[in-house]
């Protein structure tokens, strides 16, 4: 008992105060960027990219990385002969709008500068057949959805219950979500906690490609979650299928199955990148 107390006193606080304080600049690898000014458009990187994430238009002399697909393997940096590819330690990459992740020529900069407040999420609801039309009154989708979004944020702003769903991951992303509960990240300090059942959840944190065998379970979990609800796609797999795209057993991202509010790129995204994405979904970061 005495030893236990000694340890408790020895380590009173390990928690990193992210996002209030930014992480101490570290050597970790984050977003890979291509400098169009240095690039000679040889196309080697696009040829070798294991995730076919590099979009290249030689004639237009334009190149960019689709961060929804990128698995952050830094192979392109290794391959590039002219040093145009650089890996930064940027990790706050979550976005609302998937297009922002693959906006071809814009990808290098657009990601961080998107004005978040005036982005509407309405369109993501069009993609799904999950919302039952008869249940909606005679107003337009847009109005309902934008009202709904506002309410969601008001309701969830200070306290949020999350249910995690692994829809076919390699378990990397799940371990990083797990790490949100460790003493370093301690998500509960932000009023966010994980719950055991989707029926108690406000948000689904989904990893994995949405495999054929998990498809039904994911949709059912979504339906079991009471409205209003948010869905966050964690990792390259959930955003686009990642390296497992286009096989007989996978979907290319979970937005083929359920509407997604925020996409967090990475393979896997660091725990802080996931925190950033969660906070973005409930508008607590701008």
């Amino acid at each position: 008992m005495f030893d236990t107390l000694k340890k408790i006193i020895k380590y009173p606080r390990l928690t990193q105060d992210y996002p209030n304080r930014s992480l101490t600049p570290a050597s970790f690898l984050g977003q890979t960027e291509i400098d169009t000014a240095k690039c000679n458009f040889c196309g080697e990187c696009a040829l070798h990219c294991p995730s076919q994430a590099i979009v290249l238009d030689k004639s237009a002399r334009s190149i960019g990385i689709d961060y929804a697909k990128c698995i952050f393997c830094i192979l392109c940096e290794e391959i590039c002969q002219v040093g145009a590819v650089q890996t930064t330690n940027k990790f706050e990459l979550a976005v609302r709008d998937k297009v922002t992740l693959n906006n071809h020529a814009l990808c290098a900069n657009a990601l961080r500068d998107t004005p978040l407040s005036n982005k509407s999420n309405g369109e993501s609801f069009y993609k799904t057949a999950v919302i039952n039309e008869e249940n909606l009154p005679n107003t337009s989708y847009e109005t309902i959805c934008s009202d709904l979004q506002a309410t969601v944020k008001k309701i969830f702003g200070r306290s949020l219950q999350i249910r995690e769903v692994d829809a076919g991951s390699c378990n990397g992303c799940d371990y990083e979500i797990n790490a949100l509960n460790n003493p370093f990240n301690d998500l509960e300090r932000l009023g966010i906690s994980f719950v055991a059942s989707p029926r108690h959840a406000d948000m689904l944190l989904v990893t994995g490609t949405g495999t054929r065998n998990m498809q039904q379970a994911l949709v059912k979990t979504y339906e079991a979650t009471p409205d209003p609800k948010l869905v966050v796609a964690v990792g390259a797999c959930a955003c686009s299928g990642g390296i497992f795209r286009d096989t007989y057993a996978t979907n290319n991202g979970i937005d083929a199955l359920v509407p997604v509010d925020v996409y967090i790129p990475g393979c896997p995204p660091r725990p802080q990148a996931i925190i950033y994405g969660i906070l973005k979904a409930i508008d607590r970061v701008k």
């Binding site: 490609t209 495999t211 065998n213 497992f244 096989t247 007989y248």
Partner: peptide, 11 residues
């Protein structure tokens, strides 16, 4: 099991 079967061997 096999809920997360992704077809890696075929891929």
């Amino acid at each position: 099991l096999y809920y997360v079967h992704k077809g890696i061997e075929k891929l």
